[in-house]
C-alpha cells in the first residue's frame, strides 16, 4: 500500500540535529578525503605534480589501465545485455541458477577472484600448462588482468538492465514482432531506446570499477613496473616507495574518474526517469 505523495518535509528543530549529525559524518567520511587527495597531490606544487604525472611508469600504468578498460567494457556490455534479455524476456528451466551466477562475483572477495584465475591459468593450472606449452602467457601479463577485470565487473550491466527491463515488460517488443520486425530491428528500434540510459550507466559503472580494480588485479598482475602495473597498483607501489605525493597524484586521477561516474549517474538517472514518463 502506498499512501502518499512526496514525504519530503521541512525539518523540525530536533530533525536539524539528525541532519547536522548526518552532514558531519558525510563531511568527515566522504568530503574530507576528496579534499585531502587534491591538496596532497599538489602539496609540492604544480611542477612536481606534472612531473609525477609524466613519469614513465605512471604513463605506462595509465596506458595499461585504459587498455584493460577498453577490452573489458565492450565484452561485458554485449554479454550483459544478452543475459538481461534472456532472463527478462523468457521463462526457462534454470533461470534462477543463471541469475545466481550473474550475482556470484558480488559475493567473491577480489583476492579470491584473483586466486580462482591463478589456479586456472597459472603455470600449474589446468589451462595454464596447456597455454604455457603454446607460448601464451596469461598470468602476470595483461590478458590475466583483463580476465579478472571482466570477472569482477561482469554483474554491472546485467544488474542495471534486469530490473528496468522487468518493469518495462515486453508488450512493445511483442507488438513490433507481430508487425514484422526482425530481431536486429526490434532491438535497435524498440529495446535500445527504452534501456539506453540504464545501459550507459551500466557501462559507466563497469568502466569505473575496471579502472580502479585493485585486489584481484594485484593477485594476477605480478606488479612489474612499467609493464603490468595498473593505476590502482601504482598507488600502492608509490606509497611503498614513500612517494606520498606521487601516490596521491595517481589517486587524484582515479578520484576524478569516480566523481565523473557520480555526475554521469545523476544525469543518466534523470534522463531515464524522463524517458519512462514519456
Amino acid at each position: 500500500m502506498r499512501i502518499s505523495h512526496s514525504h519530503l518535509r521541512r525539518p523540525s528543530k530536533s530533525a536539524w540535529l539528525l541532519i547536522g549529525t548526518g552532514l558531519l559524518c558525510v563531511l568527515l567520511l566522504l568530503v574530507l578525503p576528496l579534499i585531502l587527495i587534491v591538496v596532497s597531490a599538489f602539496s609540492s606544487g604544480w611542477k612536481l605534480f606534472v612531473r609525477n604525472l609524466l613519469d614513465a611508469d605512471m604513463l605506462a600504468a595509465i596506458r595499461l589501465t585504459l587498455w584493460v578498460a577498453l577490452l573489458t567494457v565492450p565484452v561485458n556490455l554485449v554479454f550483459g545485455t544478452l543475459t538481461a534479455w534472456c532472463v527478462t524476456r523468457f521463462e526457462f528451466f534454470g533461470k534462477k541458477l543463471l541469475l545466481a551466477l550473474v550475482d556470484t562475483p558480488y559475493a567473491i572477495s577480489p583476492v579470491v577472484a584473483g586466486l580462482c584465475y591463478l589456479l586456472l591459468y597459472g603455470n600449474q593450472g589446468w589451462l595454464g600448462s596447456w597455454l604455457d606449452a603454446h607460448g601464451i602467457q596469461v598470468m602476470f601479463a595483461w590478458p590475466g588482468i583483463v580476465l579478472v577485470t571482466i570477472f569482477v565487473t561482469s554483474p554491472y550491466v546485467a544488474r542495471e538492465l534486469i530490473p528496468l527491463m522487468q518493469v518495462q515488460g515486453s508488450q512493445e517488443e511483442e507488438a513490433a514482432v507481430l508487425l514484422g520486425a526482425g530481431g536486429w530491428t526490434l532491438f535497435r528500434r524498440i529495446t535500445l531506446p527504452n534501456i539506453q540510459w540504464a545501459l550507459i550507466y551500466g557501462t559507466v559503472l563497469t568502466t569505473a570499477r575496471a579502472v580502479g580494480e585493485f585486489g584481484s588485479v594485484a593477485v594476477v598482475s605480478g606488479s612489474i613496473r612499467g609493464q603490468t602495473n595498473t593505476l590502482a597498483l601504482q598507488v600502492q607501489l608509490l606509497q611503498q616507495d614513500y612517494n606520498a605525493v606521487g601516490a596521491f597524484t595517481a589517486s587524484l586521477l582515479l578520484a576524478c574518474i569516480a566523481l565523473l561516474t557520480l555526475f554521469l549517474k545523476v544525469l543518466l538517472e534523470y534522463r531515464q526517469r524522463k524517458a519512462l514518463k514519456v
Binding site: L30, I37, F214, A258
Partner: peptide, 17 residues
C-alpha cells in the same frame, strides 16, 4: 549523490586517503 562515492572510488585510493 555522494553516498555512492565509496562504490565509485577505487578501494586503494580510499585506503590510502
Amino acid at each position: 549523490t555522494l553516498i555512492d562515492l565509496p562504490f565509485a572510488l577505487p578501494t586503494a585510493v580510499a585506503g590510502l586517503t
